[in-house]
Structure formats: structure tokens, C-alpha cells
Design a binder for these strands. Structure first.
Length: 244
DNA sequence: TGTGAAATAT
DNA sequence: GATATTTCAC
């Protein structure tokens, strides 16, 4: 990982090695796109087992892991636990689920951060701080550390002071309103949900289980029994999958 | 509460 | 600009 200067003269870890994991192919693809826009070096997989293999084989090859929470094979929490237990690498969780319990669970299991889907470019731009922070704790292990330690004070200061300018630039790519990756921000407007493949399949199963007559939002919702899912969510998804 | 359609977000 | 999701009106 190298620190290079961006247009503002600030340092940025171009080419930081990221392992992205998401059971849903579309989500993963999106994740990769965003990460690449951040100029990170991305490796991606939908398979949790494969992810573990990759990590175990070339343990030193990655700076950070980003993984989805909801998955069928290995539950995201378990994956998180294994990784943080087995190796020394920061893990950032990504999820469409903003339940405080899930966030808390992630943090307790060792997650460095918990980002809500869809993840904004701005948020991804900032995840490198977890790598830096980790490396500051064990200087011997990282080649980048010296470089960092020398610069850390000034870099951090400048990052804060220049926040206004940075926002101006970012506005170009993302129509950001206010970017506060604030986990517990209860004032946040309802975030857009993402119909993952798993959810969609549950949805389809529910509809099949019910007859064409019974397949109305409320009953579908009950059959699906997904925490956090609302009647409106189902209704809209139903509409979106009905019309043609 | 269900449905269609407009409004928004990505 | 198309598509997915939310919000609105009935």
C-alpha cells in the first residue's frame, strides 16, 4: 500500500488491497465498482468459504476485508468472528439492515465499521482509516507505518480542516447531502432497502405458497417473516414484479 | 389495507 | 436514461 497525494495534496492510500465479500452477485458488483472508484485494489467473491481460503493462503496480501452481513452459507457474523479471531485484519460490515442489535453484534464481534447499503463513495473513501489505525497499533508489522506515523498528525488535521473543500469535490461524483456515517443516526431518513436474491426468493416462495388470491402485501409479509421488512416494502416489490 | 401511479434515488 | 423503491392518492 502506498500513500500518494490526491488533488488537494492530501495523502491517500492508492491501491489499498481490499477483499470484498457479498453473497449477492449484484451487490458484490456494485461494491467492487465503488471500491475501484476509490482507487483501491479489489478482490471479490460471493463465496464465504472461498474468501476464507484466500485470506488463509496469502494472509499478508490484504489490508482490509469488507463483507455483507446476510448470507446463507456462513452467516456474516460468523465469518466476521472467524476472520477477526484467526487473523489480524480489519473487517468492515456492510448491510441493508440498520437494526441497532445487528450493528452492536457486529461491533462486539470485532467489526471496525458498519456501513449501510447502498454504500456511498464517500464512506468507502474513508475506510482506509481503519487500516491506518490498525497499523499504528502494531508498527513492526507494517511497511507503511513509518510513513504514516510521520504524517499522521498533519494528515488528520488537514483532513478535518479541508473537509469543506473535499465536500465540494465529492459533490461532483455523488449528490451528497450530509455524510455522517453516524451509525446511530436516528434522524436519518428511511434508507432505501435492497431486495437481495435471498429476500426475493423468500418473496417468491411466499407468493407460491399463497394462492394468487391470497398473495397480497400483508399476508406475504407475514409469511416471509423478515425483521424490519414493511408492508410497503412488499407492496412496492409486488408492484414492481407484477407490471409489464 | 390494496392498488395504481407519481416522485425519487441510484 | 432506465430501473428500483418510496411516497402519495384513492
Amino acid at each position: 500500500m502506498l500513500l500518494k497525494e490526491n488533488s488537494h495534496g492530501d495523502q491517500f492510500p492508492v491501491g489499498m488491497r481490499v477483499l470484498a465479500i457479498d453473497a449477492n452477485f449484484v451487490c458484490l458488483k456494485y461494491l467492487v465498482t465503488v471500491l475501484q472508484q476509490c482507487r483501491y485494489k479489489v478482490t471479490a467473491t460471493t463465496d464465504a468459504e472461498e474468501a476464507l481460503q484466500i485470506l488463509r493462503n496469502k494472509n499478508e496480501e490484504f489490508d482490509i476485508v469488507i463483507t455483507d452481513v446476510v448470507r446463507e452459507d456462513i452467516d456474516g457474523f460468523k465469518l466476521l468472528q472467524i476472520i477477526s479471531l484467526e487473523m489480524d485484519i480489519p473487517v468492515v460490515m456492510v448491510s441493508a439492515n440498520d437494526d441497532v442489535s445487528n450493528i452492536m453484534r457486529s461491533i462486539k464481534h470485532g467489526a471496525r465499521d458498519y456501513l449501510l447499503k447502498p454504500v456511498r463513495l464517500q464512506e468507502m473513501m474513508n475506510i482506509w482509516q481503519h487500516v491506518i489505525r490498525k497499523n499504528l497499533d502494531n508498527p513492526e508489522k507494517s511497511s507503511i507505518t513509518k510513513e504514516i506515523i510521520d504524517q499522521k498528525t498533519s494528515t488528520l488535521k488537514r483532513t478535518r480542516n479541508q473537509s469543506t473543500k473535499e465536500e465540494d469535490e465529492s459533490t461532483k461524483e455523488e449528490g451528497e447531502t450530509d455524510t455522517h456515517p453516524d451509525i446511530a443516526s436516528s434522524s436519518r431518513k428511511k434508507s432505501r432497502m435492497t431486495w437481495t436474491q435471498e429476500l426475493h426468493e423468500k418473496f417468491l416462495d411466499a407468493i407460491q405458497e399463497l394462492g394468487n388470491e391470497e398473495a397480497v402485501p400483508n399476508t406475504i409479509l407475514k409469511i416471509m417473516n423478515v425483521p424490519g421488512l414493511t408492508r410497503e416494502n412488499v407492496a412496492s416489490h409486488l408492484q414492481g414484479n407484477t407490471r409489464k
